[in-house]
Amino acid sequence: MGIIQKSQLKSPWVLHYDCSSCNGCDIEILASLTPVYDIERFGIINTGNPKHADVLLVTGGVNRRNARVLKNLYNQMPEPKVVVAVGSCACTGGVFYNCYNILGGVDKVIPVDVYVPGCAARPEAIIDGVVLGLQKLKEKTQMKSEEVAK
């Protein structure tokens, strides 16, 4: 692993996108950035630019209008990248499972690496999900460097 790959694991930047959630998980994501939970002690910074992001935090069950935006954001992120589905809605559709405009889970649109359940997911669970995602990121980085070596 080169220095960029190593530092990516030490300081992953997250991008947050709300795909028709109720706001609960979004404010919990913000809460995990603020003093009590302070996700920055893991080197994690919230960024608004998908081109700078390593981890995509998605909340909500994805509706028809949002799916295009989500795909767009996912495609703009550089490889290797990790997607964390935050909250019950992002995992399965949750309480909105029978709403006509809900596709039912982020994995219907983009590949998901970590599922964080909970309605709304607690900041501890979100931080745990991101840290789990970092292990996936490491695996992906190693796979990529092996491919390059071949």
Partner: peptide
């Protein structure tokens, strides 16, 4: 319309 879920209809179901 980016967060429209159709909650009012779900309330009838």
């Amino acid at each position: 319309g980016y967060i429209h879920r159709g909650l009012e209809k779900a309330g009838e179901l």
